[in-house]
Amino acid sequence: MTAGQPPIAYMARTRAYYLALGYDNPYAWAHYDTVPFTPLGQALAATRLTLVTTAAPFQPGKGEQGPGAPYNAAAKFYQVYSGDTAAEHDLRIAHVAIDRQHTTMTDSGAWFPLPRLRTLAEQGEFLLAGRFHGFPTNRSQRQTLAVDAPELLARCRADGVQAALLVANCPVCHQSLALAARHLEANGIATVVLGCARDVVEHCGVPRLLFSDFPLGNAAGRPHDPAAQQQTLRLALDLLRQATAPRTTWQSPLVWPGSPDWKLDYANPERLDPTALAGLRREAEAARLTARQLRDDTLAPTFCSL
C-alpha cells in the first residue's frame, strides 16, 4: 500500500466491518443529487468566520477519554453548541471509529485548530466569530436535519457569521457535518468541510471539501506538524474564496508520514483474528447499549455512535 493509492472507501469498509461483527442491517448513507452553494459575498478579510468541530470537551468525571482510551459513550453527552474564543478548551476525539492504530490523538491542532485560526485572524486574514460550535454526530439524519443543523444556523446568524470551517473526525462525523454544511449554504453561509473520509462527504454532496488523505482524526493537518496544519488551513481559506460551483473538492498535497499500511488496517476484518473480532463485537455492543441508555436519560445528543 502506498500513499499514491486511492483513498479508503469508508462506506464500503465500515459495511464489511459491521457485517463481520454480526450486524446485518447496513447503514444507508445520506445522498443528494443537488447541492446548495453560497459564494463568498465579500473579501475574506471582511468575512466573519466560525469553526465547527465534532470533537468533544474532556469530562473528567466520565472515564477515560485520552489517547488509546476505549470508546466512552458517556463522555459524548454534553451541552453542545458551546464555545467562547476567549477561553481555552480541552477537546478530544475519543470516537469509536477514528483510526486508533495509526494516529496519535495527542495534538488537538489536528482536529480543533482554534489557536491557529486565532493567529490568522490577528494577522487580518478574516474576522473570527466570538464562538466556535461543537456539532453532535448522530446516525439519525432526521435529527441532524430537523434539530441540530437549524440550531447551528441560528447560532451562526446570532453571531453575524458569513462563513464556516467544519472539521470532521469519524465517518458519521463526516456525514453530520456534510448535512450541516448543506443547511448553512442553503441559508446564505459559505462553508468548507475539512475531512479525511472523501467518499462519505462527496456521496452526501457538499459545496466545498478539503480532503486530506490521512487517518481519521487529522482533518486539520498532520499531528505535531505546525507547518502542515497552517498549510491545511490556508488551503481551506483559498478554497472558500476560489470555489465557483458546488461539489468542489481539493485534495491536500500533504502525505501521511507514518506506516503506509494504515489504509489496509483501518476497520478491515480480514486483518483481524476471530478473538479480536469477538472483542470488538462486545465493545461495539456495550457502546450501543450505553448510548441508548444515555439518550433516554438526557436531552443532549451523542457525538458519535458508529
Results as ranks from 00 to 15, higher is better:
Thr244Pro: 00
Gly124Gln: 09
Ala158Phe: 09
Val206Trp: 02
Thr104His: 01
Pro269Leu: 06
Arg155Pro: 00
Gly130His: 08
Gln143Gly: 08
Leu299Arg: 11
Gln123Leu: 11
Cys196Phe: 01
Ala16Tyr: 08
Gln123Ile: 06
Pro70Phe: 09
Thr298Ala: 15
Pro223Thr: 00
Gln293Tyr: 14
Leu166Asp: 00
Arg241Tyr: 01
Ser108Ile: 04
Gln42Glu: 14
Glu125Gln: 15
Asp261Cys: 15
Val35Gly: 03
Ala287Gly: 15
Glu270His: 14
Lys76Asp: 13
Ala163Met: 08
Gln242Thr: 14
Thr191Tyr: 07
Thr53Glu: 11
Pro246Ala: 05
Arg131Cys: 13
Leu233Cys: 02
Gly22Met: 07
Val192Ala: 06
Tyr27Pro: 00
Leu277Thr: 09
Pro274Thr: 10
Cys304Met: 07
Ala75Ile: 01
Ser259Thr: 14
Leu289Cys: 09
Gly205Ala: 06
Asp33Lys: 05
Gln65Ala: 05
Phe135Gly: 02
Asp238Tyr: 00
Asp99Ser: 03
Tyr10Leu: 09
Phe112Trp: 04
Leu184Trp: 03
Pro246Ile: 05
Leu166Pro: 01
Leu272Asp: 12
Thr38Tyr: 02
Cys196Ser: 07
Pro260Trp: 11
Ala227Gly: 00
Trp250His: 14
Thr248Phe: 03
Leu254Pro: 02
Ala16Asn: 14
Gly217Phe: 06
Ile93Val: 14
Val52His: 04
Phe112Cys: 00
Thr85Tyr: 05
Ser82Gly: 08
Leu165Ser: 08
His183Met: 10
Gln65His: 08
Leu306Thr: 04
Gly160Trp: 10
Ala94Pro: 00
Arg282Leu: 15
Pro150Trp: 13
Ala286Phe: 12
Ser252Leu: 04
Pro6Val: 01
Arg292Tyr: 11
Glu270Val: 12
Asp225Ala: 12
Asp159Ile: 01
Thr106Gly: 09
Arg281Gly: 12
